[in-house]
Amino acid sequence: MSEFQIELVSSGRWLIAQLSGHVEILRPELLTEVLNPLLAEDNHRVVLDMAGLSYINSVALGVLIDFRKQLMDLGGELRLAGASEQIADVFRQTRLVEVFPIYKDSALAVQG
C-alpha cells in the first residue's frame, strides 16, 4: 500500500492534486504510484498541492521531474503549490524553482 495519497479537485482548466501522507521518501515508486494515474486523466494541467508535505529529498525531486516531463509530453503542465519554506528552499538551492513554478497555494496556482 502506498504511503502517499492523492485527492483530486477540478478547478477550471486545472486539476489540483493534493498530496498527503507519509513523506519519508525512500522508495520513489511509492510517489510514482500515486502520480502516474494522473497521466490517465483527461486534464493534464496539474497543480500539485504540497501543503501536506514536510520533507523532500533528491529521489522525490527526480520523480517530480519525470512526472512533469510526462505531463508536458501529453501537452500538459505542472505547477507546485503550498510548499513549506524549507521545501521551497530545496527547489531554490537546486535551481529547480526555475523548472517548477511554485505558488503560495493552489488557488493562486490556478490563477497564475
Partner: peptide, 22 residues
C-alpha cells in the same frame, strides 16, 4: 554540477550538491 542549465532537468545527480548546500 546539477545546477548547470544543461543538467537542470535531469532526474538525478543532486545528492552531493544537496549535502554541500545544507
Amino acid at each position: 554540477d546539477p545546477t548547470l542549465d544543461e543538467n537542470l532537468e535531469k532526474p538525478n545527480g543532486r545528492g552531493i550538491m544537496l549535502m554541500r548546500a545544507y
